[in-house]
Amino acid sequence: MKSICIIFNKVPYGSQSSRELLDIALMAAAFDMPIKALFIEQGVLQLINKQQPEVLDIKNHSATFKALELYGIEEIYVDANALNNYQLTHDDLMPIAELIDNNAISEHIQQSDFVLML
């Protein structure tokens, strides 16, 4: 079964890209595809804990991130370097992602059969 690496690199709610990537991840999981989710660059902000998009009448999709594990997606990584750039720590995030460095990011991309960004 081909493996897929889904990369989140955008700030939440400015576009539909992360919602769509999440849907793709859940669908791929339903087909038992090996999946990795990488949060890099501005995408690390997707994992910030206290999101309240309701004030913009936007559905809060951050809850769906917690569903990733329910769907058996355990390989969830967040770019430690990017976190530092935004003065964020692991505690500011939803507790679902493992901190990784830059080399690990290119390795995960290199090992996956498909790499998808939106």
Binding site: N9, I40, E41, N102, I105, S106, E107, I109, Q110
Partner: peptide, 11 residues
């Protein structure tokens, strides 16, 4: 820069 960062040497 972000793209170059994610690449491996043989890419």
């Amino acid at each position: 820069d972000a793209c170059l960062n994610a690449m491996s040497t043989q890419d």
